[in-house]
């Protein structure tokens, strides 16, 4: 008994806190890295279909996103349940596409403008009607590089 008490009295259990900032910074960096910054809040439900022949989109600054899907439940009272187009962070009409593309284009250096790709993030359950209208408008605006966003299918 006495032996045990002696030991406790001698040891000075002060844990060093010098490394605490490092640990906190590490956590901070970790979350900074894994978090994907979404530039737009999704107002439409988009579940992209699966495919196998996928191409990676390399440079993010050269990509503009067009979302097509049914409005989320909280917007359905205003916008209905028909599939809608979302550009940036708001609902849009097909006629708004040229302006949207132009707004993105001016931010891109001139020599890289031919490389601009439009990423169509379309819900799998949407019918082709609205997708077709968007495609026609993209062709009319001269935006011919299009990427149908899809998830990798496990084979």
């Amino acid at each position: 008994m006495s032996k045990f008490q002696k030991k406790r009295g001698k040891a000075n259990p002060a844990v060093s806190t010098a490394s605490l900032p490092d640990i906190i910074f590490m956590l901070l960096f970790f979350f900074m890295v894994v978090t994907v910054l979404r530039d737009a809040e999704l107002k439409v439900k988009v579940t992209t279909p699966f495919a196998t022949e996928l191409t990676k989109l390399e440079e993010k600054s050269l990509v503009n996103y067009l979302y097509i899907g049914r409005p989320e439940a909280k917007y359905q009272s205003v916008y209905g349940t028909r599939p809608r187009l979302q550009l940036g962070d708001k609902f849009a009409d097909i006629a708004d596409i040229p302006l949207f593309l132009e707004q993105h284009k001016v931010k891109v250096p001139e020599n890289k403008r031919p490389l601009i790709t439009s990423s169509l993030r379309v819900d799998g359950d949407v019918t082709m009607g609205i997708v077709q209208d968007v495609k026609v408008q993209l062709r009319k605006s001269g935006q011919l590089k299009v990427n149908y966003s899809a998830k990798k299918k496990a084979e």
């Binding site: 992209t48 495919a51 989109l57 062709r139 299009v146 990427n147 998830k151």
Partner: peptide, 12 residues
């Protein structure tokens, strides 16, 4: 990252 099927649309 964003992946998908890359398509070249015909000019209008």
């Amino acid at each position: 990252e964003d992946k998908g099927i890359l398509v070249k649309l015909p000019p209008w």
